[in-house]
Simulated assay, not measured.
Amino acid sequence: MNRTFLARALAGLLFVSTPLTLSAQDERLTVHGSVNIAYGKTDGLPYFGLNKDGSADYRAIALQFGYKLSEKDRVVTQLLHRKFGTSPLNAAEPDIQPVWAFYEHKFDNGTALKVGRNPLPRGLFNEVRFIGTLLPFYRVGSQVYGETLEYIDGFAASKPFNLGGGFGLESHVFGGGFNLRAQVPGATGNSVINARYENMIGTQLWLKLPVEGVRLGAFVSNYGGTPSATLPKNARPARTTSVLYSAEAKVERAFARAEYTHFTAKVPSFTDYSAYYLQGGVKPVEKLTLAVEYNSAVNVVRFGGAPIPNLDLPITKDLGLGATWQPSASIAFKLEGHRNEGYGFDRPVPSVIPPTAPPLVAKLAPASKAFYGLLSVAVAF
């Protein structure tokens, strides 16, 4: 089955899915989907698949099928197709993949258990970041979420708790394996990571405060690289711990969000990564949203130990402004502009100046800059 056939099949499914949903909503089968398509370009340096020529090969399409087995049991499959323009990440991204494929059972005490390829409960947007009608930008928190970690192969369980006094707790626990794909700049150029990790365990907790629309979240996971058990003990890679902290406040016509993540890994290459974003927006009229988002990410460049100390490499500092016109809940038109400064471009840029004489201290090369814009439309059904 070749890629052309798969792409045409997905397009056909998207074409027929709207009437299928209408006829199946009252039965056991449901079909939902989202289509996000964009055109973008930069003023010079290529960044995340966009360049000076412009690219319309920019999209994220998700199609979800659900089947209700009983009042407490269902199965869900979601297919995903993405293109990132001319980004090197395209080489590590399948044309179409089953990003979700799980069985869910709901217990009488409020616990829900998913088994299979499950949505990974991580942060504010991980489970909805392909539904463009819910997002103020084409991509949100790009340095925190990246273009991976959408799922976990294994199990995910959740249970809500009423703590009294207007407080509530939403708890998630999960375990299994996942794939990681990312582009990471370093002292010698860019590299695309496409790795598999297993034996992950973790939790996501959400604390709902007595103030309406305010909640705080914390995510932590611990996982190992592969291969591991098949290697001698002294050659096995160390396990990695990843954390993410979230805060959100929403009122009728305004919102504010912030998230921070950090992890240190030794495989497939040494990475000490931290990132955060700040996001805010207002709705001056019912159908218009104006938003601003600032993304920052830092990776530690290691020179193999003494005598040259490690160096913090600010991968990106991205400031974005966006406007969304949403005539209905199922469609949104977006226009956004960004200023990106740093070293995380699609082609290597000067980043680190190694020392040539004492004192042996590396220096950062002047940061590169690019302005880029995106015009997109999002549809959900």
Score class of each variant (00 low, 15 high):
T4W: 10
F5A: 08
F5Y: 13
R8C: 09
A9M: 12
F15G: 11
F15D: 04
V16G: 12
S17V: 07
L20H: 11
L22M: 15
L22H: 14
D26M: 00
R28G: 15
V31L: 13
G33K: 01
S34T: 00
N36M: 10
N36V: 01
Y39K: 12
G40W: 04
G44F: 03
G49F: 05
L50C: 08
N51L: 06
K52A: 15
S55W: 03
Y58F: 10
R59S: 10
A60T: 14
I61Y: 11
K72C: 03
V75I: 15
V75C: 03
L80V: 08
S87H: 12
N90P: 11
A92M: 13
D95S: 12
P98K: 07
N109H: 09
A112I: 12
L113P: 14
K114T: 04
P121K: 01
E127K: 02
R139E: 08
Y151L: 03
D153Q: 07
D153N: 15
G154R: 11
A156Q: 07
S158V: 06
S158G: 09
S158R: 06
N162Y: 00
G164Q: 06
G166R: 04
G166W: 06
H172N: 14
V173E: 02
F174P: 11
G176N: 08
N179S: 11
R181A: 04
A182D: 14
G186Y: 07
A187L: 09
S191C: 03
S191Y: 04
V192E: 08
N199G: 00
T203E: 05
V211G: 00
F219C: 04
G225H: 03
L231E: 07
K233M: 08
T240N: 07
T240G: 08
V243N: 01
Y245L: 14
A247V: 09
V251Q: 10
R253Y: 07
Y260I: 01
F263R: 04
V267D: 10
A275L: 11
E286C: 01
L288Y: 04
L288M: 05
L288W: 02
L290V: 10
L290C: 04
A291P: 09
V292T: 14
E293M: 14
S296E: 12
R302M: 00
G304K: 11
G305E: 09
P309T: 11
G320E: 10
G322P: 12
W325Y: 13
A329R: 01
S330C: 05
S330P: 00
R339G: 05
R347G: 03
R347C: 09
P348E: 04
P348A: 07
V352W: 10
P354K: 13
A357I: 06
P359K: 14
A362N: 02
S368W: 06
Y372K: 01
Y372T: 01
L374F: 00
L375A: 04
A380E: 05
F381M: 02
